[in-house]
Amino acid sequence: MKNDGITLVELIIVISIIGILVVALGLSFQGWVGGYRIEVQVKEMYADLMNARARAKQRNRAHFVVVNAGNYQIFEDTNESGGTAPDAVDLPIAGFTNPKTLQYPVTSGIRTYTMNT
């Protein structure tokens, strides 16, 4: 009698092992992607803050960064009032005419940061 093939039991065991490995790798991948998205948001905010800082030094004007729970916006002190918060005359800088939406909200409440020359 020749044994050239595989049995149904062996096939089911191999498929079960492959299924378990796929599920485990899928869950690991989802965690990795979530961490990557948070890292991208933090790096983008950092770049925007550093650009506002450099722009404040270059233009010799104060810049304001207003951070809400779900978005942030950067203003330039166009009337040079030297205030600590943006007023109706201050204009958002290019790229911030609408607040940038945060995919992962900030939980510290509304904050205004001032970058002076």
Rank of each mutant, 00 (worst) to 15 (best):
M1C: 07
D4S: 10
D4N: 13
D4K: 05
G5K: 11
G5T: 12
I6Q: 13
T7L: 09
T7E: 05
E10H: 11
V14R: 02
I15K: 06
I17P: 06
I17N: 02
G19S: 15
V23A: 11
V23Q: 15
V23L: 15
A24E: 02
L25Q: 13
F29Q: 12
Q30V: 13
G31M: 10
G31V: 15
G31H: 14
W32G: 15
G34Q: 12
G35P: 09
I38N: 13
I38D: 06
E39H: 07
E39R: 12
E39F: 14
V40R: 10
Q41I: 13
E44S: 15
M45S: 02
M45F: 03
Y46H: 14
A47G: 04
M50D: 13
R53L: 14
R53V: 08
A54K: 13
F64G: 00
F64N: 00
V65E: 10
V66S: 01
G70K: 11
G70E: 07
N71Y: 11
N71Q: 12
N71A: 12
Q73R: 04
I74C: 07
T78L: 14
N79E: 13
S81H: 09
G82L: 03
G82K: 00
A85R: 01
D87G: 03
D87W: 00
D90H: 01
D90F: 12
I93P: 05
I93E: 00
I93C: 00
A94G: 03
A94C: 00
F96Q: 03
T97A: 15
T97W: 05
N98H: 01
N98K: 00
P99W: 03
K100N: 06
K100I: 09
T101A: 09
V106R: 09
G109N: 06
R111C: 04
T112N: 11
Y113F: 15
T114A: 10
